[in-house]
Design a protein around this nucleic acid. Structure first.
Length: 291
DNA sequence: CCCCAGGTCGTCA
DNA sequence: TGACGACATGGG
C-alpha cells in the first residue's frame, strides 16, 4: 500500500464529476478505478490517500500524475474568480475537484459515445468494450479489464460493436479506430499542436465535433483552453449569466471571452455543480459497474 | 407517447 | 457558412 499525504483533493467529486467512466464506488467509500495499465483502489481519509493496486510499481507517481496532485488549483481558482464573480459559487462547490490526466485514446472512444447520451449509458458502453477486448486483471479476487489498445480493436466488425449499445455511433467508433491505427490521426503528436489546430485535427474523425474534440483535449491532454459546451452548461449559463443568445456558438464566444485560458476548468465546475444539484433533487441516479 | 441525455452528420438553401 | 432534420437506445 502507498500513502500519499497532505493532499487537497476531493476524491469523490473528482471521480464522480463525469470525466471518468470506469470506476466502482466500494462500500467503504473508496474507489476502484481502472487506469491505463493497472487497477487501483483509492481511499481518502482527510488529507491522506491510501492506495492499493495489482501493480505497485511506481504507484505513487502514477497516482500523483493521474489525479493531477502537483497542479496548484488554488491559483487557478483565484485567476478564474478575477474573470467573473458569478463563478464563485461554482468554484466553491467544486473545491478539491481535479482534472484527471487520462488516456487520450480512451477519451476519444468514450466521448464519441457521449454524444446525445447519458452518463450511465456511456459508462455501460465503455465498460462493455473494455471487458470484451481489454486485458484482464485480477485485483482483490475480482476481474477487471484494462481499456483496449487500438491494435486490439482494429479487426472488429460493426455488427459486433453493436453488442455494446453504441446505437448509431458504431460507425464513428470504427472510423476512429481505423484513422488512429493507420496514423491518419496520430494521437502522439497532438501535444505539438496549438489547441486550435488540435481541435480541428481531432474533428477529422467522424463523430468528433467541437464538443467531443474539446473534451478529448481537456480530459486526455489536460488542455484547459477549450469550450466543451453541452446541454447542462447551456442551461447554467442561461440561468446565471443573463445570456440571451443560447446558441452553442454564442455561448462558446461568451465563455472564451469571459474565462479565457482556463475556460475548460470553469465549464467543468459548472457541469459538476449543475449535475450535483439535480442529483440532490433525485433526478440523477448514476450507477457504476466495472464489468 | 412525450422528452431528454456531456452532439454530430448530411443535406439543402 | 448556416439552418435543420435524423439519428439508436434507455430512462423518466
Amino acid at each position: 500500500m502507498v500513502i500519499i499525504e497532505n493532499i487537497d483533493i476531493n476524491l469523490e467529486d473528482t471521480i464522480e464529476c463525469g470525466q471518468c467512466f470506469r470506476y466502482t464506488k466500494e462500500k467503504d467509500n473508496s474507489y476502484t478505478i481502472v487506469i491505463i495499465d493497472r487497477v487501483v483502489n483509492i481511499k481518502q481519509v482527510d488529507d491522506k490517500l491510501f492506495v492499493n493496486s495489482n501493480d505497485e510499481t511506481n504507484l505513487k507517481n502514477i497516482i500523483t500524475n493521474y489525479l493531477d496532485l502537483n497542479t496548484d488549483y488554488n491559483e487557478l481558482n483565484i485567476s478564474l474568480l478575477k474573470s467573473d464573480i458569478v463563478l464563485k459559487k461554482y468554484i466553491d462547490s467544486s473545491i478539491g475537484l481535479k482534472m484527471l490526466r487520462q488516456d487520450p485514446f480512451e477519451m476519444v472512444v468514450s466521448y464519441i459515445i457521449s454524444a446525445r447520451n447519458s452518463v450511465p449509458s456511456i459508462s455501460k458502453s465503455v465498460n462493455s468494450i473494455a471487458s470484451s477486448y481489454g486485458k484482464k486483471v485480477i485485483f482483490n479476487n475480482k476481474k477487471y479489464y484494462l481499456f483496449p489498445k487500438v491494435k486490439d480493436l482494429i479487426n472488429i466488425k460493426s455488427e459486433e460493436l453493436n453488442k455494446h449499445k453504441l446505437g448509431y455511433r458504431d460507425k464513428f467508433i470504427l472510423d476512429a479506430i481505423n484513422k488512429i491505427y493507420t496514423k491518419q490521426v496520430n494521437l502522439n503528436t497532438i501535444n505539438n499542436l496549438t489547441t486550435e489546430e488540435a481541435l480541428e485535427y481531432l474533428k477529422t474523425i467522424k463523430g468528433i465535433g467541437p464538443k467531443v474534440s474539446s473534451c478529448v483535449l481537456l480530459f486526455g491532454y489536460h488542455r484547459f483552453d477549450v469550450y466543451p459546451i453541452d446541454t447542462w452548461v447551456i442551461k447554467t449559463i442561461e440561468e446565471d449569466f443573463n445570456q440571451i443568445d443560447t446558441s452553442v456558438k454564442a455561448i462558446t464566444e461568451f465563455t472564451k471571452e469571459k474565462f479565457g485560458k482556463n475556460s475548460g476548468l470553469a465549464i467543468q465546475y459548472m457541469f459538476h455543480t449543475s449535475r450535483n444539484k439535480e442529483a440532490k433533487n433525485g433526478k440523477n441516479n448514476v450507477q457504476q459497474t466495472t464489468r
